[in-house]
Design a protein around this nucleic acid. Structure first.
Lengths: 194, 194
DNA sequence: ATATTTGCCTAACGACCGTTAGTTAGGATG
DNA sequence: CATCCTAACTAACGGTCGTTAGGCAAATAT
């Protein structure tokens, strides 16, 4: 239907908030900023949302659930470590590139969550980290991966993937699939020429 | 001398600010927070500093200059690409781990700088990025490095190094030198066995 | 046609923001 | 001893913050 693209006010607010939270940070974005972008008064936002933090919560947990959901689906596939690794990286990068604004907020603004949301969020992140730790650990057991420190290795991979927002533009030459492919290549084989 | 460790008020303020800016972010840290940590009134800070942003400027540019200085020194050594790469990564990680609070502020709070400082900062960052691009480009010409996309490769390396603050603790098992060594290993050879 | 709901408005609340002005106590300097 | 300097203070400024209350007109439902 033609109206599928038209967002209702609540969605518009969340969309605008994502954008501003990414651009200026959560703390430096005021309700009046968000309202201004939509051409309404700050007080009017409260007809649609409960609070500023509620918006942040939605952004953070929506993305956290996407990451966890994709990890669970991948786990069910029972793939060999190397293949699982490739698909996991590809999925992670797909989610990030498809949700650029949310991703930046997810990565850097979660600390402004209040309890108990803050603790919940940290737990979900830990679960997702463990998913990756298990992949590379399995890879080592299968004798297909080698590394010295598990934590360092996983965080190198996470940091590289999560840093994509620093340089990725949807209109650039590199598309998500290629980014994933090339990153996997670097992670697996490095940049040294035999 | 015994008093070498004792900081004057201005240094104390900068030290406290670094810590709070890292912990809560620049925008969410008030002058009253900083003052409170030091047991004085917010207005008293202005006997020592000019403005809140001046503190941010000092943090950002101090670190930017450290990075650039180290890159210039390395460039003068005229090393082969692989060796230069190793030393550059090691230096970068040394600076980050020795300035954890500043590093986080440097990486994430610079956007709150006002002009012309913002533009100056971006330029310095660009210069430093080019230093790394030149390394891997030289490595390719020397036929010691291989990669598909220069930008992606450099940003993978940067992101991994700059993400160290997420997990590094000075009291942990991994020390900066070992981190550098192991990261270089991943960058150069990857985690795939044979 | 009437009643209800929706989505906005204005006005305002108390709190906190960065910063300035003016002052004062105490120590250092002449 | 007189003077200057340092580092703090109190008080206050104009603004902005997130949020609430109450009202009103248009759209929707009955």
């Amino acid at each position: 239907m033609a109206t599928a693209i038209i967002k209702n006010r609540k969605q518009q607010i969340h969309h605008t908030a994502k954008n501003l939270f990414r651009e200026r940070g959560y703390a430096a974005t005021s309700m009046r900023h968000i309202a201004g972008e939509l051409g309404i008064e700050a007080a009017s936002l409260y007809s649609h949302i409960k609070s500023k933090e509620e918006i942040l919560q939605l952004i953070c947990f929506e993305l956290a659930e996407q990451f966890l959901k994709s990890s669970e689906e991948l786990q069910r596939k029972k793939l060999p470590a190397k293949e699982l690794f490739k698909q996991a990286v590809t999925e992670h990068i797909r989610i990030i590139t498809q949700n650029m604004d949310s991703s930046v907020v997810f990565l850097h603004e979660w600390r402004h969550l209040s309890e108990p949301f803050l603790s919940d969020f940290k737990l979900m992140r830990k679960r997702y980290e463990n998913f990756y730790k298990n992949i590379i650990r399995a890879g080592e057991k299968e004798k297909s991966f080698k590394y010295q420190n598990e934590n360092l290795t996983v965080f190198v991979i996470f940091s590289a993937m999560n840093g994509i927002y620093e340089w990725f533009t949807p209109k650039g030459k590199l598309q998500p699939e290629e980014i994933a492919e090339q990153m996997v290549e670097v992670f697996l084989n490095g940049i040294l020429k035999n």
